[in-house]
Amino acid sequence: MTWMEKISWRLAKRIKMDETPYSIGQLAHGIEIVLLNILNVIALFVTSALLQIVGEVFLVTALFFFHRLLSGGVHLKNPWTCMTATLLLMNAGGYLVKHLSATVPPYAALLAGVGIGIAFLINYRYAPAEHTYVSTDPKIQQKNRVIILNIVGFCCILSLFLVEYVYQLVIAYMVAILTQSILLLPVSFQIANRLEKHFERMVVK
Rank of each mutant, 00 (worst) to 15 (best):
Y165K: 15
K139W: 11
K139R: 13
I148N: 03
N144F: 09
L162N: 02
V152W: 08
S159E: 04
Q141M: 11
S159F: 04
I157C: 05
E164Y: 09
S159Q: 00
K139S: 14
L158H: 01
C155S: 08
N150S: 14
V163H: 00
P138D: 08
L162Y: 03
L149G: 04
T136I: 14
I147E: 11
Q142M: 10
L160S: 02
C155W: 09
E164R: 12
Q142K: 15
R145D: 01
L158G: 04
F161T: 07
F161L: 09
S135Y: 12
V152H: 10
Q141C: 01
L162I: 06
N144E: 02
I157Y: 10
E164K: 10
F161H: 06
L158C: 04
L160P: 00
I140R: 14
T136M: 14
L160G: 01
V152R: 03
S159M: 04
F161V: 13
N150D: 02
K139T: 09
E164T: 12
Q142N: 15
K139C: 05
D137A: 06
F154H: 02
V163K: 02
I157D: 11
S135G: 08
L149P: 01
D137E: 10
N144M: 07
I148E: 00
D137G: 07
Q142Y: 07
G153H: 13
L162K: 04
G153Y: 11
F161G: 03
V166P: 01
I157N: 07
N150E: 11
I140G: 14
L162R: 08
V163G: 01
L160C: 00
I140F: 03
L160M: 05
P138H: 08
V163S: 01
C155H: 06
I140T: 08
Q142R: 10
K139H: 06
F154Q: 01
Q141D: 07
F154C: 07
V163R: 01
L158P: 00
I147P: 11
Q141P: 01
N144V: 04
Q142P: 04
I147D: 02
I147M: 09
L158D: 01
V152T: 11
L160Q: 02
I157F: 11
V146W: 11
K143R: 03
Y165M: 10
V166T: 05
F154M: 08
N144Q: 14
D137V: 08
L149H: 08
K139P: 05
N144R: 15
V146P: 00
N150K: 12
E164N: 09
V152L: 04
E164A: 14
P138K: 15
V146H: 13
L160K: 02
D137I: 11
F154N: 02
